[in-house]
Design a protein around this nucleic acid. Structure first.
Lengths: 189, 189
DNA sequence: CGCTAACTGGCACTCGGTGCCATTCACACT
DNA sequence: AGTGTGAATGGCACCGAGTGCCAGTTAGCG
């Protein structure tokens, strides 16, 4: 099978799943339903997605790769917060067409606790990347307190911006992310 | 059954579970094992803990109650960050006897992704409490960006401190929490 | 056309979690 | 002490997620 066919099927599976989840509720949809909706066997479904939860999170890993390269592209002289801000704005940019899907995804992440939990696990990769980047810019070890706290805090801020964005139907994501980073840079003291 | 007996059993179950988890690994221990180790039936185990995951997290909800009351005890005039710092120091205080158990818990939280995910879900209560408190102090709505970001960021900072503490066998937790809050208050800009 | 390697999907199994229900146990009241 | 009542227990059957195994199919290539 060509990899094109593969990603095509994955997309179809994903779209069908998102539809079913939002209509019937996450828990009321079984994996058999998802497989049937995507026209594949149950066993095959699990070859496309490791978990029922992961169907919701789809593109998150690609985004991680994007984050890493975006961070690498920012000159060393820029401070970690600004670097992270730039990278995040780049990674979180979405075309207007994708907004409804993005809102669905994030709604599920916020609504279904298990999915949110799974998202947290996925974001750990982001945190590692951010800690490594910040450590390099500050000239310290990634395991030290400052980069560790920084990495977690940055992801948390982004997710906070997501939450607010979701609650406001007409809001733009970008200014919220910018504002969240401003708060972070300024400090809460 | 008296509630004393109940919590006693819960403790025994918890202790046995923590032991088994650290020795054999989380996944290699079944709920039947846990129930047997605690001298109860499998069905009863699930009356004490909603989930296998939750055995690890035990006291976290009590801590939430402690956080809420600690926050309420801080005068209105204190800014949110300082208030949160005070509350966290109070809630995270542990007697030296408890340290080994605490380390085990946190190790499992960091090591086993599912457990970490579950912890994130549990911390959402903390975030709601923090957002409400911060909003009250700032005189804004809890749903606004600033309190939302603040709440998540504070919990993230604390968890960052936990991570660093875990990695350093001889470290004290308290100064790490203080340092994390200092970073937060000062800002990362 | 035929070979090989990868993809598929059915089957059976394990394990976490839940509803149901008969039994047992703790406690209070007489 | 004796008894009744309500809660706690734990066995049983069931569901759904996830996995190993394997036979059948399909796609790509010489």
């Amino acid at each position: 099978m060509t990899s094109a066919t593969r990603t095509l099927r994955a997309r179809r599976l994903e779209a069908a799943a998102l539809e079913l989840f939002t209509v019937r509720g996450f828990d009321a949809v079984t994996v058999d339903d998802l497989a049937a909706a995507g026209g594949v066997g149950r066993r095959t479904f699990f070859r496309y997605f490791p978990t029922k939860l992961d169907v919701v999170l789809g593109q998150l890993d690609d985004a991680l790769a994007g984050l890493v390269s975006a961070l690498a592209a920012v000159p060393d002289t820029v401070d970690p917060t600004s670097a992270a801000r730039r990278a995040f704005l780049q990674v979180n940019a979405y075309s207007p067409d994708d907004e409804p899907v993005l809102r669905r995804r994030l709604t599920l992440i916020e609504t279904v606790p298990e999915v949110g939990a799974r998202a947290s696990v996925r974001y750990e990769g982001w945190e590692r990347a951010l800690a490594a980047d910040a450590a390099a810019r500050w000239g310290c070890a990634p395991g030290e307190l400052r980069p560790q706290v920084f990495a977690r805090v940055v992801v948390a801020a982004m997710r906070g911006a997501f939450t607010v964005w979701l609650a406001a139907p007409d809001a733009e994501l970008e200014p919220l992310v910018v504002a969240a980073f401003d708060d972070l840079a300024r400090g809460f003291g």
